[in-house]
């Protein structure tokens, strides 16, 4: 298992890095408590990974995950969907027992 980015997600992340003028930054994927189903995903850009982070290269996107979060996000697929109502990243987690409609939080 690992983390997956759909093509749409890769494109979107690269677009955001271009707009931010931070091509060298890493995408940080993490998990924190709270959200409607207990845990929620957090995305952010960071300049440098922490020493114990796990680093992935997914279709050219450098992704870092701290080790605790990795327990929960391992196997997650990140997609980007652009709809009429809202556009955003969506997360699919095979080990999540429930996920909420916003796709940003889940429980195991």
């Amino acid at each position: 298992m690992a983390i997956n980015l759909t093509n749409a997600a890769v494109e979107r992340i690269n677009e955001l890095k271009r707009k931010r003028q931070t091509p060298e930054h890493f995408l940080r994927l993490g998990v924190r408590g709270g959200g409607c189903s207990g845990l929620s995903y957090v995305l952010d850009f960071v300049e440098t990974p922490e020493p114990k982070d796990k680093i992935f290269d997914l279709n050219g996107v450098k992704v870092v995950v701290d080790r605790k979060s990795y327990l929960f996000v391992n196997g997650t697929e990140i997609d980007y969907k652009k709809g009429l109502m809202k556009a955003g990243f969506e997360f699919k987690n095979p080990i999540a027992s429930g996920s909420c409609s916003c796709g940003e939080s889940f429980s195991v």
Partner: peptide, 16 residues
Amino acid sequence: AVVMGGRARCLLDDDG
């Protein structure tokens, strides 16, 4: 513009 990673950068539109 925003400081990211210790450096200020301007944010670009869809066309760069």
